[in-house]
């Protein structure tokens, strides 16, 4: 009896609308992030992650407004990521009602942002997102490197070492996405998941590649993750959150039912 492993549906939002579509049967507006977030809350999701992929500056105001709307109606933790560049962006999102803010590329350009943000707002609300891709060492052994720009641009930074550094800088949680697996439905990249969960003392969310309920189980049992994040298996109604939780419970994983 203890802490439950978390299941976190993720919404990709552009200009205030959910992209990649959501295909719930009884939903009125499949593009409305507020309605979808509320639906996941009702299904028993443990948290919701909102990934803003809006490029334009004007669009960011829409995002803030959407976060406010969700926070008024959803009473589980909400993480907002995407486009967070400075401390003021973090403050804006927290004031809008986000409980945590996820920092990705900006942490690579300016690691001190993580330290400053954790000092100012507390580690509990600072998530560092890591997009890792498998590469081979000269001797052919696998290692994982951080990539930016949707997995196109290598940084030369070792993902495991980076996770440890970010934990030291005050991150409260790591959101690890395998760029090799994202969108493939082949399951999490368990090697890097295990390497990072072993390396850091803070919780790790596994992301990228979920296609079946067994993948969720593997992320926790084999990868050692504290939470699993998925988008499409929930969006397209293949599985509901309660189905995922029931399956995980059956496999001996402690979940909130």
């Amino acid at each position: 009896m203890g802490l439950a492993k978390r299941i976190i549906p993720c919404l990709d939002v552009e200009n205030g609308r959910v992209v990649k579509g959501v295909n719930f049967v009884e939903i009125r507006d499949a593009g409305d992030p507020v309605e979808i977030a509320r639906r996941y809350n009702e299904q028993g999701a443990d948290e919701i992650t909102f990934l803003d992929i809006t490029a334009s500056h004007e669009g960011r105001d829409t995002t803030v407004h959407t976060v406010e709307k969700i926070a008024e109606q959803v009473f589980i933790p909400l993480t907002v990521g995407g486009g967070i560049r400075e401390v003021s962006d973090i403050r804006t999102m927290l004031n809008a009602g986000a409980d945590k803010v996820s920092i990705n590329t900006a942490a690579i350009h300016n690691p001190d942002l993580v330290r400053d943000a954790a000092d100012r707002f507390g580690s509990q609300c600072i998530v560092v997102a890591i997009d890792a891709k498998r590469v081979e060492d000269v001797d052919g052994r696998p290692r994982w490197e951080i990539f930016t720009h949707g997995g196109r641009k290598p940084t030369g930074i070792d993902a495991v070492a980076w996770a440890s550094k970010m934990a030291e800088f005050g991150a409260g949680e790591i959101l690890l996405t395998s760029m090799d697996r994202d969108g493939t439905k082949n399951g999490f990249e368990l090697g890097v998941t295990r390497a990072i969960t072993d390396a850091v003392d803070i919780p790790v969310i596994a992301s990228g590649g979920v296609g079946t309920l067994d993948h969720l189980v593997d992320g926790i049992v084999l990868g050692g993750a504290d939470a699993v994040l998925a988008a499409s298996i929930f969006h397209f109604g293949e599985f509901t959150v309660p189905q995922a939780k029931a399956y995980m419970a059956q496999r001996g994983i402690e979940v909130r039912l």
Partner: peptide, 17 residues
Amino acid sequence: HEQSGERLKVPHMGWNR
């Protein structure tokens, strides 16, 4: 650690009884 030997992360983050 939990008594069972399970390693516990800090912060204590998530849903507990």
